[in-house]
Amino acid sequence: MSRVIVVTSGKGGVGKTTTSASFSMGLALRGHKTAVIDFDVGLRNLDLIMGCERRVVYDFVNVVQGEATLKQALIKDKHTPNLYVLAASQTRDKDALTKEGVGQVIDGLKEMGFEYIICDSPAGIEKGAQLALYYADDALVVTNPEVSSVRDSDRILGILQAKSKRAEEGMEPIRENLILTRYNPERVEEGEMMSWDDIVELLGVPLLGAVPESEDVLNASNAGVPVILHEGSPAAQAYEDIVARYLGEERPQRFLTAEKKGLLKKLFGK
């Protein structure tokens, strides 16, 4: 049985693609055959973050329009044999995707034995975002601890519950999970950011994990390596936890409270 997972947020720039890259890498490293699809047609980013941009020959739109087969378009990751990337097209616009075409690609991936199919949604609530979530079984809703991001996530949750295939056909609803990114407990304590419990209360979605604000995320993106591979980084540990919890492991939440700084640390900095 394969599961289709949409990574979505409504708002742009909150960490959807970073999360898609690290989450799919995490699943693949644990031995699960995983495919990750970039739905952001026209603004493709996933291949950059995955470090495979030079190997893109055919893309998602080519497959949807029958110009290439899935096998031709899937790019094998350099780090693990279990992970494949389906890049977005940089030259087409989002009207190139259709509901039927996307459905055929997802069915094709299921037939090829992929256990997890990750759909990296574009920002917004328009057609591209709606297509990315339409076939989902699970959703990872990525939110930053700030009011506008939380509100946009609330909006996209409403769409998940109304416009997905599962909702339209009256099946069991999409399993929703919250991922907080750029979480900075110090700034939460100072009242500059929303706290995780306020966000969970408002959205009514269980917290899968929080990813602390970290320079490693930016560095990893620029290097074209998913941050989960950045050993020793708190962001990598956070994504590792998130993958484990998604797969049913019980792990206590980390990175939610500020580290108590001792006198020496206060005096001498970090």
Binding site: V147, D154, R155, Q161, L202, G204
Partner: peptide, 24 residues
């Protein structure tokens, strides 16, 4: 819960919501 961007209208009657009405 009524989420951001959603609208509910009870025509000619009362409206009872068991859940929250979120911002927006």
């Amino acid at each position: 819960t009524i989420r951001s961007g959603q609208q509910v209208y009870a025509k000619n009657r009362d409206l009872v919501i068991i859940g929250s009405v979120n911002p927006g």
